[in-house]
Design a protein around this nucleic acid. Structure first.
Lengths: 337, 337
DNA sequence: ATGAAAGCGCTAACAT
DNA sequence: ATGTTAGCGCTTTCAT
């Protein structure tokens, strides 16, 4: 039987209100009683019932977070960022995993909406229309996607691709392949765009491969195409795909980066652990999680105008899978020049 | 403004109680009114406030889950298992990540205890005493650790090690090194035990290395020792450590498995993606998560005696990092034989 | 079969 | 500065 505010009140010889005040708004009570009440509360191990408090204040002190797949290290980073920021503000967080199934999103959203003060929706796959329904009742912040009218935190994917292409061009690459991710992914669209713009500006050929599933086997499947298309460098939709590329390339005895350079995106922990270590575009998902929570909290506090969109910088991390372009060999695609 | 039971009652022309009954205990109301109420509720988009319901029923329909590190793929699997089982039973789950810091565990536990009906505590690091405090109020199921008096689901680590050693012995290995994990880890203790028993029974030498941190760099640090100790096979505390081992071995130009075999534990997704792919002991963490929730739910339902402990089987997965032991070379440690 | 009323634990007016 | 009262949204006696 948990101890309630009543028990504390009785034990301290004051009313419930005084106990409530002594704990929530200490300056409103006499220092003497305040001390006594707090002592009793601690002694009894009193913990206010947040549900009951929420019922009256309208605040649950809970946040919701929906991610496509917790097993994906990228989203694990998001979760940790969200958790850290939430805990710092004394919020708890409900997490739901859609298992990459967009159709479960609306249901989860609705179920969550009632028990939380706000929701962080990470990489939503569901159509915009679904969002508006929930968005009315509960503040929602989007991550990795922009929808008109919604606050969002994104990362500058296009600029990351710009850095990637410039890096490769500086190494002498004149023909780059892109292993595309899911067509419905907002991030993929951004990345394709950045690639197109920068390759165009630099006069580098861009070969579009895919779309491939954003998984290891997607990379495995794309490797032979990348090799055959005459590119001297491949940029993958994300690190997992790049790892698949590397695996298949290794199996075929293709030297990386001597014969072909490989570049990932996301900088998941695993990228630094492979052999050779993967050159990749680091996206600050942990910080993005923190930013999303900060935005949500600001929305809830409702103190004046709120920053409604943040675009976090990305950063190329050069490791071992990118190197100078091989000399054009006679008899290959390069002969056409 | 969310719609409450009152709104539904008014719109349907009945009392709150009838609405409540029509939705929670449909057989207690006239089929006609029941239908009308349900129709109105749906139309208005009524969603009962779980907090308010919990206040009176004493049930929150929430479960808590505490894991050491969400970024660790092993625990990501646990989370997914717990989520799946919880959702199937219409429970939501609060997740907290201790960041591998045992000292935050009691606080989180206490904070969670009030808002959930039960808690799954995964790989707890905190001393047994801390647990008892919370265990009194809220049902707790332990994962990957046993503490007297607590329900738990574990995996048969010792048997996994038995399979590993038998595999290696069959390949001709007579001297095996173990790169130990954290001293405080229950799983590590189990694994050491299993190793000791089976190597003893088979007359195989066992060299104990470490303890090392259960991370990639732990494996990197252990690699040279493993090489120097005259073992022809290394078993790592877990896959991440094994990956570190592989990386350092690769950097030194040591052939795996020709010169030395490497064996991991856990079978995280990454293990199948390395080159060569890692031989490892698969532990069913996803299923363990499900089992823990099932146990918790049974405890809550309180219908008769409950299975209070489950030990899930582990399974050796042979991939490419284990092979036949190299011939003893003159001039090495094997000369002593 | 349905309604009225009480109350879960807590906070927020309103008194004093 | 403190106590009294009302009520958050819901379920559950207890009447009818």
């Amino acid at each position: 039987m948990p101890v309630t505010i009543k028990d504390v009140a009785a034990a301290a010889g004051v009313s419930q209100s005084t106990v409530s005040r002594a704990l929530s708004t200490p300056d409103l009570v006499n220092p003497g009683t305040r001390a006594r009440v707090q002592a009793v509360a601690r002694e009894l191990g009193y913990q206010p019932n947040r549900a009951a408090r929420g019922l009256i204040t309208g605040r649950t002190a809970n946040l919701g977070l929906i991610v496509p797949d917790l097993a994906n290290p990228l989203f694990a980073a998001v979760v940790k960022g969200v958790q850290a920021a939430a805990r710092a503000a004394d919020y708890s967080v409900f997490i739901a995993d859609t298992d990459e199934d967009a159709s479960t999103e609306p249901g989860l959203l609705r179920a969550l909406a009632k028990q939380v003060d706000g929701i962080v929706l990470c990489s939503p796959r569901s159509p915009d229309a679904e969002l508006t329904e929930v968005g009315a009742d509960t503040p929602v912040v989007l991550m990795n996607r922009q929808v008109p009218g919604y606050p969002a935190v994104t990362v500058d994917n296009a600029d990351g691709m710009r850095q990637a292409v410039e890096h490769l061009a500086a190494l002498g690459h004149r023909r780059i392949a892109y292993v595309a991710g899911p067509r419905s992914s907002w991030s993929n669209g951004q990345r394709e765009h950045g690639l197109r713009v920068t390759t165009g500006a630099l006069g580098v050929d861009l070969v579009h491969l895919g779309h491939f599933p954003p998984r290891f086997d997607g990379g495995v499947a794309a490797a032979d195409l990348a090799l055959a298309c005459g590119a001297t460098a491949v940029v993958a939709y994300n690190d997992i795909v790049a790892l698949g590329l590397l695996s298949r390339l290794g199996a075929r005895g293709v030297a990386v980066p001597d014969r072909i350079s490989v570049l990932g995106c996301d900088d998941i922990p695993m990228s630094a652990m492979t052999h050779p270590a993967l050159t990749t575009v680091s996206v600050p998902q942990h910080e993005a999680g923190r930013a999303a929570v900060a935005m949500l909290l600001a929305l809830l506090a409702d103190t004046g105008p709120v920053t409604t969109h943040r675009d976090l910088p990305t950063q190329l991390t050069v490791r071992a899978t990118t190197g100078v372009a091989p000399d054009p060999e006679p008899g290959t695609a390069d002969r056409s020049r």
